[in-house]
Design a protein around this nucleic acid. Sequence first.
DNA 1: GCAAAAGTGTTTAGCTTACACCCATGT
DNA 2: ACATGGGTGTAAGCTAAACACTTTTGC
Lengths: 254, 254
Amino acid sequence: MVTVEHNAAVAVELVVFTVLDEQLAVLAAVRQVMPFRNRLELPGGFLLPDEDLPEAAERELWEKTRIESARVYLEQLGTYASADRDPRGRVVTVAYLALVPGMSADLTGGSALTEGGRTHEQDDGEDGPELPEERAAEAEWVPADELLDDPDSLAFNHHRILGDGVERVRARLEYSSLGTLFCADEFTIGDLRKVYEAVWDTTIDPRNFHRKVSGTADFVVETGRVTSGEGGRPARLYRLGDVTVLNPPLRRPA
Amino acid sequence: MVTVEHNAAVAVELVVFTVLDEQLAVLAAVRQVMPFRNRLELPGGFLLPDEDLPEAAERELWEKTRIESARVYLEQLGTYASADRDPRGRVVTVAYLALVPGMSADLTGGSALTEGGRTHEQDDGEDGPELPEERAAEAEWVPADELLDDPDSLAFNHHRILGDGVERVRARLEYSSLGTLFCADEFTIGDLRKVYEAVWDTTIDPRNFHRKVSGTADFVVETGRVTSGEGGRPARLYRLGDVTVLNPPLRRPA
DNA sequence: GCAAAAGTGTTTAGCTTACACCCATGT
DNA sequence: ACATGGGTGTAAGCTAAACACTTTTGC
């Protein structure tokens, strides 16, 4: 068997989005080692032997956030290999986009993450091997706008990767029903509208949005239950439907 | 300076499309070495030291096809690293999509490419430059349909990469003016329509297409010249315009 | 004249937008 | 009663699909 010569260190990096406090938020951690020590970075790590790329992305997501992949959408975002992007040598990074629920009670209750603050992530040893040169940092949700506004807020070329991720998730919400993944298991159409408004950073007419969503077959399915005590007429509760591609799309304003 | 351990061989692969004979065609070469000897493969090669990914893609395009990057569109398509995709070891492949003109006289005349699968056309005397690499084969244009229909027609996982490439170029034509890159320097709106029909494998109403293209600002710009002797009323000739994003898009039929 | 391809006009249908208006709850 | 958010109705405007029709060449 002929073998090939390895010429790079391949890593995966995650751009994990959620919607918290009606804002698009991304998962970032304070980097503990040089280079870029004390700078925020996107979670990620090197590919393990015999590991596929989606596998590696799922593993990193679990290790860094304890988020199960069941309710998570993962999609390859792009690959970055600028020779000068990592001062330590030749690193090729495959970035993945991940969308996780933000309003879900079980997520905020059952994970080590806190909203807008820092919390310790317990490393109870049953997961994969710790990377030798990188200690686990505390991951936290940071508003995407905050990081986008300052090109030096993130380590390496992560600012560019984040920018690509934001553009991708904004486009995905136009042409797919993936926005429902940011909601809890049951949600109102108003909840979903707030997700769209957060990601697109715009306002949407509630009446037209309601008609569009409820009129698209299988976008959302009624559960029969309604909300109560939210300060207005009770809203019908929905679960996400089967449709992933919206036709016609929900165009965002120019 | 800390260094990182290399854990994979990173390569770039090209899905080079053109439109020949009113068909979407892709560049492929007969593989000369094991594994997958005598199978068709997409052109590509390993990343060189200190080389960026777009650089490597441009270099491979030039080495394999002698196509200058001036009139070529290059875009990252995706990265593939299935552990079993290459029997020789751990290979991570970054695939690039390339669009090159197909009706251009200088392309068909000055390259070593043949049109229409394995059948040589008229370049009997001028065999084209022998490619310097030892395992380089003669690249040829193959109709994309032909390869898509047979999952075993291509080496490695190239069939899947080609499928992703076809889907990408079809989507690009909806939302961008990149279809003009498949045309010669000067082209008629009918030429452009034939490009769309070839890529989408459909028929388009010539009148509505004409109105749509000529009515979109900067999609195409008139040269003032017209065709003659094409068997009908002379058509105005156009060059590609500045616009890359079509708003509203040119939707393909479902 | 006739075929063929280019280009224009017109009708119809579907979708989006803006907004008037009603519904059902908490206080 | 009134504020608040949920939900429906409707008319105007834009876009695309379908197709009748005119234009300009080669034969």
